[in-house]
Simulated scan of single mutants.
Amino acid sequence: MSTIVSAIISLTLQGQKLSQKQKIAAMEKVTFQRENLKLVGNLYFPKNFNPEEKYPAVIVGGSLTSVKEQMAATYAAKMALKGIVALAFDYSHYGESEGLPRQFEDPQNKLRDMKAAVSFLESLPYVEGIGALGICTSGGNVAYLAENDSRVKAIATVAAWLPNEATLPLLYGGEDNLEELRETGKKAKEVYLEMGDNQMVLAYSNTDKTASHFGPMEYYMDNNRGGGISAWKNSFSLMSWEPWLGFDPTSKAKNIKAPTMIIHSDGSALPDNAKQFYADLGGEKELVWLEGYHFDFYDQEKKVNEAANNAGRFFKAHIN
């Protein structure tokens, strides 16, 4: 199956006319503040956008270490083509957004980033209501957001990464190895605070077992797919281990009241956790169980379209 990354990279700026044949959303680079940090995003506009009208809007985020030009761009463009204003942005510490140390993963930082993104969309006069769409890791991040921010009217997840305390030992080699990783993170933080040295390992690798995530990682290893996005860095700050291993989006489900759509498959990460997350949701909800491998939902057109069609339908029904 062909990828759609190359098409997304060729997006045009707001105000330029787009042919029906192109089927590419108009886009404008934007900046907004989170406390003292500048965050950078790309804002995608529906066809025939009229700033005098009102539109539903969503923030869109992708996988661990990803940047806005990867799966966030893919889905934001799809949402725009469905009449939804969509913001794909770089979390702090990644891509074009500010934040030190670089490549630092912290779910609480990302929660603050998402709240700032919601505030930015809320400030736009043509936005009538706001939702959040998370792919892979950001599926868990939007769970944090929905639990904490009542401004979010609906959320949807695609192939979400939804770990919990019970699955962590299975994912990271047992309790002893988990404790070793946490200690590695603590020591790396001490080195950074004392010497300013941000120690890194590869984020993903098919061959290097020191990578934070080792295994079949074809999306990231393929220069025709995610690995070819120049803004992305295949790096993971060792300081991230402690906050990253505390990431527990499944515990948030029972507190989420906003309408929620879970889009998943047996071939996506932690399918049993996705089903449990769905069962625990306290509000209106919809489960869409598709076929497909986890990385297919990042950039393979058939799977992306299936997921985006469902998410777009859900957002149009619930954001107002």
Score class of each variant (00 low, 15 high):
Ile9Leu: 14
Gly131Thr: 04
Ser138Tyr: 04
Gly283Arg: 14
Asp272Gly: 05
Arg313Trp: 02
Asn141Asp: 10
Ser235Trp: 04
Leu290Gly: 04
Ser2Cys: 03
Val288Tyr: 00
Trp161Lys: 06
Gly312Lys: 06
Pro259Ala: 08
Lys186Trp: 05
Val58Arg: 03
Glu165Thr: 15
Leu37Glu: 10
Asn223Gln: 09
Glu28Pro: 04
Gln16Phe: 08
Ser268Cys: 03
Thr210Asp: 08
Ala73Ile: 08
Leu162Pro: 09
Gly134Phe: 00
Gly99His: 14
Ala72Tyr: 01
Leu162Gln: 07
Asn234Phe: 02
Glu122Arg: 14
Asn42Arg: 12
Lys82Glu: 13
Asn320Thr: 10
Leu202His: 02
Leu37Tyr: 05
Met200His: 11
Tyr126Lys: 10
Asn234Ile: 06
Ala76Asn: 05
Leu124His: 10
Glu194Asp: 14
Val142Trp: 00
Pro259Ile: 13
Asp90Arg: 11
Tyr144Pro: 11
Glu52Ala: 14
Ser19Met: 13
Val127Cys: 08
Ala154Phe: 07
Leu193Gln: 15
Trp244Asp: 09
Asn42Ile: 03
Leu11Glu: 14
Ile256Gln: 01
Pro169Ser: 12
Met221Ala: 14
Gly61Trp: 02
Asp280Glu: 12
Asp149Arg: 10
Ser92Arg: 14
Thr3Cys: 03
Ala88Ile: 06
Arg225His: 09
Ile256Leu: 05
Glu286Arg: 13
Ile135Tyr: 00
Pro163Cys: 10
Val58Asn: 02
Thr65Gly: 03
